[in-house]
Computed example of a mutant assay.
Amino acid sequence: MDLFSRSWTALRAAVGGLSGDDWERPSGCAGWLVRDLVCHLVIDAQDVLITLVTPADAEPTADAVTYWKLVDPPTGDDPLDALIPRLAAAYGDPSLLRFHFDDVGSAAGRAAELADRDLRVSTQDMVLTAGDYLSAYVMEWTLHHLDLIAHLPSAADPPPETLAAAREGLEKIAGAPFPASLSDKDALLIGTGRRSPTEAERAALGELSAELPFVLG
């Protein structure tokens, strides 16, 4: 819960720091500008709100790690992926997008703080405790924070503790640890295909390099 709040607060602060041409810069999500990514984050925040008020009576079928599934790399053909840039462009003035994001994002943050961690919730045909669901989103917020600042060199990185938690989660998904020589940030970027490893990094990864990238969905 604490890591959810830290990662979400940091990401919201990074969006709050956007100005001028920042909105039109590429993001770390292929084919999306920064404004497109922020529009996606509005939808993510809505998903948090919806899930936290969708209780389930069944036993949990997933946890913070198994919530994530390995999927094929995006091709750009997914209807939702294509819809996001159109939605983002419809805002026109980025200040309107910022306002909507801050409004919905604040509500999602408050809902997370108030949530009973033991409450069972339902999302995407899965049942999780609210605590596990919010823990899973530490990965989402941390990776998208890295996406947001990919071409904003003066922007702050995600908090060290959330980078470490996201790395730990990715290693559990991968079924193997990343080399200690890789920083948490580099392990996440390389592990999820956000950048290619150098020859030295590939050598350090060993057999794990053949399994990259781990694309989460």
Rank of each mutant, 00 (worst) to 15 (best):
residue 109 G to P: 02
residue 48 V to H: 04
residue 120 R to A: 04
residue 70 L to C: 09
residue 146 L to P: 05
residue 211 E to D: 10
residue 195 R to H: 00
residue 153 P to I: 13
residue 100 H to Q: 15
residue 175 G to M: 06
residue 140 E to T: 03
residue 62 A to W: 06
residue 46 Q to H: 07
residue 26 P to Y: 03
residue 72 D to N: 13
residue 151 H to G: 10
residue 85 P to Y: 09
residue 189 L to A: 00
residue 167 R to Y: 01
residue 128 L to C: 08
residue 52 L to G: 05
residue 199 E to Y: 02
residue 158 P to F: 02
residue 29 C to W: 04
residue 87 L to Q: 10
residue 111 A to P: 10
residue 182 L to T: 05
residue 14 A to F: 11
residue 164 A to G: 11
residue 87 L to R: 09
residue 187 A to L: 10
residue 5 S to L: 14
residue 148 L to Y: 02
residue 210 A to E: 14
residue 176 A to S: 15
residue 75 T to S: 15
residue 165 A to C: 07
residue 152 L to M: 08
residue 151 H to I: 09
residue 74 P to V: 06
residue 63 D to Y: 14
residue 72 D to W: 10
residue 155 A to F: 13
residue 194 R to C: 03
residue 10 A to P: 04
residue 84 I to Y: 05
residue 108 A to H: 08
residue 48 V to C: 05
residue 67 Y to I: 05
residue 97 L to G: 08
residue 167 R to A: 02
residue 75 T to E: 13
residue 57 D to M: 12
residue 121 V to R: 00
residue 178 F to C: 13
residue 38 V to I: 13
residue 153 P to V: 13
residue 133 Y to S: 02
residue 75 T to R: 07
residue 24 E to C: 14
residue 119 L to G: 09
residue 86 R to Y: 10
residue 52 L to N: 04
residue 79 P to R: 05
residue 168 E to Y: 11
residue 186 D to P: 04
residue 71 V to Q: 14
residue 72 D to T: 13
residue 183 S to Y: 01
residue 5 S to R: 05
residue 86 R to S: 12
